[in-house]
Design a protein around this nucleic acid. Structure first.
Lengths: 269, 269
DNA sequence: CGTCGATTTGAAATCTATCAACGATGGTGG
DNA sequence: CCACCATCGTTGATAGATTTCAAATCGACG
């Protein structure tokens, strides 16, 4: 039931067997939603904790007038609607993209779990951080890069996150989002999104067959998109304090020419 | 020293007098930074908690090639660099926009404080949420609206946040950001940002005099920008409007237009 | 077969970036 | 006091990216 969540938490912060089994045995209420249906309409100070079990949902914000809604983030299986923290502004909600199955955890049971298992609490905190990190990466990508690269980046993220929850084939995935969804996520028009996809196809970076999307070369499209999966990785300890004896850090770093640009006064005590 | 932080936390979650005095008496190390200087170069898993005491800083992400850097968020007095949560990707750091004074809290003392005063912990959690909410609002604004409205929105946010920490006059504020900073925050070019400002002036929505920026009608520009201050409000408590009555700091503006933002106004504890 | 949603296409209107200047201002050092 | 420099704001011209509108195509499905 919550296996995607358990798997994700465990990858962020290794959990004890007991914690995992307790998590798996939490009493949950299940609910199904159809595409377009709203999971969360408004701030709910003490609502249950909601976990996506199956399907894809999105955080959305209604735009000025008509029906258009900006997509601020994606919720895949195992993702949480931000547990204790959900304080959205009036027009920030969550809607189902595909058909979704949602588990609702009673808040009290959830908080008791956190008290009993500090490692679970840590794992949830890491997950929240990751969600914020994703938001900032979106922010960084949205304004500065060309629409083509933004699109490629979003597809890379989608592939990585989907395959992390077992929804990816070896070299591709079944794309749950329509071009209009993708456009709303990038803040461009659906027509232009279509042209972006065409361009990526022409470049040989993606191949589309119905809903199936394949990356002939993961390396190539990631390079084109400037995609660095680090922000999605479970890097609880990745950036160890200081790599003293850190033999063979598998960190792939590329900030070769960090040097020019703005000169910076260094030296801080 | 930490008065801006204390005031902000208290507005998010009312604190006991004891908690506040304990907070104010935390041992801190102070450090000064000049514009462009990096406050946080890279993730530091166990670094101190850093609080902006004075000045303005920004979360930035270096862009592909040259010196340009996208601004992902602003840190004003009272804001925290999100301490333990800082999991950024390689090129995400914090730099000083204006001259800054930063307080660094020893992590151990900080965590002990959280243990002793659960309400302080709640307040910090609310603050983190607010920071994430701001990031999502930026996300929503960046792609969908026209540059003019984005710009107006950013100015509205700036005014609201600055006046929340006592850095705003009644109908305006001293803008710490250059047009290039604003452009980097919105993801547009500096030249275009300049034209945005001109347009807003022509519309009568803002009036500029050196670094001083005034809103002839707060209502009008907020309507134009689609700005809803709810996401900045201290929504822990029931819509309690901002009580002024700042018995403390009498604020008088000196150095009329001299503000180049590069000199810090010191003293005044 | 007809419908609906999703994708695709074309053309014109807008917006935005880029390049290359110029002007204003304040600070610095002679 | 003045020449000089650096930063910031401003302007014009042009190329490029993106939106909008309108319509055609395609596939799944009752």
């Amino acid at each position: 039931m919550l296996s995607a969540l358990v798997q994700k938490l465990d990858s962020l912060e290794p959990l004890s067997d007991e914690a995992m089994s307790r998590l798996a045995r939490l009493p949950v209420r299940l609910a199904n939603f159809v595409p377009h249906e709203e999971l969360v309409v408004e701030a709910r100070p003490r609502g249950d904790v909601r976990v996506v079990v199956e399907g894809v949902a999105a955080r959305v914000k209604l735009l000025d007038a008509g029906g258009r809604q900006a997509i601020l983030g994606l919720l895949l299986p195992g993702d949480v609607d931000d547990s204790d923290a959900f304080v959205e502004t009036l027009d920030h909600g969550i809607v189902a993209i595909t058909a979704c199955r949602i588990a609702q955890l009673p808040r009290l049971a959830f908080e008791q779990l956190l008290l009993d298992f500090p490692d679970v609490g840590r794992a949830f905190r890491r997950m929240a951080r990751q969600s914020e990190a994703i938001a900032r990466v979106w922010l960084a990508n949205m304004g500065q890069r060309s629409a083509d690269r933004q699109g490629a980046h979003l597809l890379c993220e989608l592939r990585t996150r989907l395959s992390a929850v077992g929804m990816g084939e070896s070299d591709g995935f079944t794309n749950p989002l329509t071009q209009e969804h993708l456009a709303n996520a990038l803040g461009i028009s659906a027509v232009h999104m279509n042209r972006v996809m065409q361009h990526l196809r022409e470049l040989g970076l993606i191949r589309v067959n119905g809903r199936l999307l394949r990356f002939p070369s993961a390396r190539k499209i990631e390079e084109y998109a400037g995609f660095d999966p680090a922000y999605l990785a479970a890097e609880g300890r990745a950036a160890a304090p200081n790599e003293e004896g850190n033999a063979g850090a598998p960190r792939r770093e590329r900030r070769a020419a960090a040097g020019d640009g703005h000169s910076i006064a260094v030296e801080r005590e």
